[in-house]
Design a protein around this nucleic acid. Structure first.
Lengths: 243, 243
DNA sequence: CAGTGGTCTAGACCACGAG
DNA sequence: TCGTGGTCTAGACCACTGG
């Protein structure tokens, strides 16, 4: 019998990926250079081609490899840097920080959308949506402020929901899954309303997140989230790349 | 990176993933509910179990499914929302916007690191690294400002590089691939130096990106990037989820 | 046209962990 | 303990696309 490599329970594809990654990082295989094809690597690593394929697709997804039929696989010239963000539920963020969660709705009414919102979500200007503003608190202190538009046409059950009591964020997560989303970050100086609701000063730099989601009925919701001053949004882990 | 156009021959695993996704989104299968096991789905879709497995792993990666051995596969209770950012090279960002790229280095010297930087990268306080500040321009206007620390021990060839002429960003991408990275966004009011170099006003809200990279020799570089006021950083596409 | 990656299959064994 | 997902394999055919 042939023994397993001692101490290692790493799946074979992972092992191949790691080894290829190492060769790239250590310049054993240089940028733009062609690497052996799947069949050859399968022999070298004593694996099935499908296993090698899986490993190489992983690396291509990370941006370390460029793969093309007939042309073969090359080390990417500009390793694309990717980072994955996980957007958790507000309540969870607050509670993970060991604080007591609460939230308060400051406004909720039907209203025609402003032109900029219309353009962003792809609805005709003046369309009437539900508009709401809410603040989420941790231990009674403002954690984030959301300014949200909701589209009843994309989520009909929405008419029945009572967001004065319920958290819109959680209701949507549970009742209106999306098929597509856009997410963007920017920074803004706190305006008068931001400052009042977040209990900070006018002009304070705020990290702003815009998120819009769609299903096949159209846009579901678009929201501008203003975080508490000093808040960070970060990645958990990131795969290999350059810089 | 970008999915195939939906119209034509969709790979079988993609088709299965789409169909399962549809059943979840349309509440045919509810949150927390157990879905048929791989063997059953393989029969339903007339596919091999490996193909079903691939589809379900995709959805689990998106956060739509929870999979556990023996316990089976369930629709996730809180669909985790994930978003992937691609951090491109500064020059490319500028040139894609149709502007002429240039950059200027404002300071470069060896210097002991401040305590907060030391803590962030995991080096002893007072360690001497290369410190540099540079501004990247589009059509002569400031595009972003970077304040960077470089560790020669993790990238020995660095000593030879001349960043007064070369772009550190690009040099690193090509010569010092990383194995691990951390990325975070926040917002800060422009300080005096930020304002001067970005040609904006003191107190202007700036989107700040912190990035630190490591290889197996230790931290390679840590950088604070301040973007031009009004700049957005966003995702390209996002997969299904909630909210 | 032919080499290379893309994908699927049928079968197998293993690892985890719920019951 | 044993059902379920995790992974691998050997082989096959197909879809691109470079030469």
């Amino acid at each position: 019998m042939i023994d397993k490599p001692a101490g290692s329970t790493s799946p074979k594809a992972q092992h191949i990926a790691s080894e290829v990654r190492r060769r790239i990082v250590e310049h054993e295989w240089r940028q733009g250079e062609r690497i052996p094809d799947e069949a050859d690597l399968a022999i070298e690593f004593d694996a099935a081609r499908a296993t090698v394929n899986k490993a190489l697709q992983l690396l291509a997804g990370e941006g370390l490899l460029d793969r093309r039929r007939r042309a073969g696989t090359r080390v990417a010239i500009d390793p694309v840097r990717k980072a994955t963000f996980t957007i958790s539920i507000v309540r969870e963020q607050v509670e993970q920080a060991g604080m007591a969660y609460s939230h308060r709705v400051f406004a909720q009414r039907k209203s025609p959308i402003p032109d900029d919102i219309a353009a962003r979500v792809g609805l005709p200007p003046g369309e009437v949506l539900v508009h709401m503003r809410a603040v989420h608190y941790g231990d009674g202190l403002p954690f984030q402020l959301e300014d949200r538009w909701l589209n009843p046409r994309a989520a009909p059950e929405l008419e029945k929901a009572d967001f004065w009591q319920l958290n819109a964020n959680e209701w949507l997560v549970r009742n209106a899954p999306y098929l597509r989303a856009e997410l963007a970050f920017s920074a803004e100086n706190a305006n008068r309303r931001d400052a009042r609701l977040l209990r900070t000063q006018l002009g304070q730099a705020l990290l702003i997140m815009h998120r819009t989601t769609w299903n096949d009925l159209g846009p579901i919701t678009t929201v501008r989230v203003a975080f508490q001053p000093g808040h960070f949004v970060g990645t958990e882990k990131t795969t290999a790349g350059g810089d």
